[in-house]
Amino acid sequence: MSVVDQAPTSSDMRHDSSTAMTLAALATATGPAASDLRVRLRGYITLLADPAQEYADALTPPGPGR
C-alpha cells in the first residue's frame, strides 16, 4: 500500500497484479516477497468483495428468482 494502514490505491493494485503476473511467467513465485504479494492480493479481493456484491445485488431486480 502507498501509506501504512490506509486503503490501497488502484495504482497499488495494478502494480501488485502486474508483479504477480511477472512472477508467474518466470515460475519464481516463491519466497518471502511472493508470499507478501499473495497476502496483499488476497486483501484486495477481500476489500472489494462486499462492494462488488452490493453492486451486483443492485443490478438484479427483486423477485422469486432471487
Rank of each mutant, 00 (worst) to 15 (best):
A49Q: 08
R38S: 11
D5E: 05
P32A: 15
D50T: 14
T60W: 01
I45M: 04
D16S: 06
Y44L: 08
S10N: 13
R14Q: 13
G65F: 06
R40T: 01
L41S: 01
P32T: 11
R42V: 03
D5L: 10
Y55P: 00
M1V: 09
A34F: 01
T46F: 04
A49W: 09
D12T: 06
P61M: 07
E54A: 15
D16G: 02
L37P: 12
P51M: 06
M13R: 14
V4Y: 10
R40C: 03
M13C: 14
T28N: 15
Q6E: 05
G31Q: 14
S18K: 11
S18N: 10
S2F: 04
A52K: 10
P62R: 15
S11M: 03
Q6K: 11
S2K: 14
V3E: 12
P61W: 03
L37D: 07
E54T: 13
M1N: 10
S11K: 12
P8F: 05
R42A: 02
S17Y: 04
R38Y: 10
V3Q: 15
S18Q: 13
G65P: 00
R38H: 11
T60S: 09
A29T: 11
A58T: 08
I45N: 02
R66S: 13
T28S: 13
T9L: 09
R40M: 06
L41H: 06
P61Q: 07
P51A: 07
L48G: 01
I45P: 00
S35P: 04
S2D: 11
M13W: 06
M1G: 12
T22I: 11
L23S: 00
S17A: 13
D36S: 13
R14G: 05
A34M: 02
L48Q: 00
S11L: 07
A49L: 06
M13S: 08
D50S: 13
L47C: 01
R66L: 11
V39I: 10
Y44N: 10
P61A: 07
D5G: 08
A29E: 09
Y44H: 14
Q6P: 00
M13Y: 10
S17I: 08
S35E: 09
A52F: 08
A52N: 09
P51W: 08
L48F: 05
A7V: 02
P32N: 13
M13D: 01
V3D: 10
Q53R: 15
L41Q: 04
G31F: 12
T60P: 00
S18Y: 12
G43F: 01
G43Q: 04
A7Q: 06
D57L: 12
A56R: 15
L48M: 07
Y55R: 11
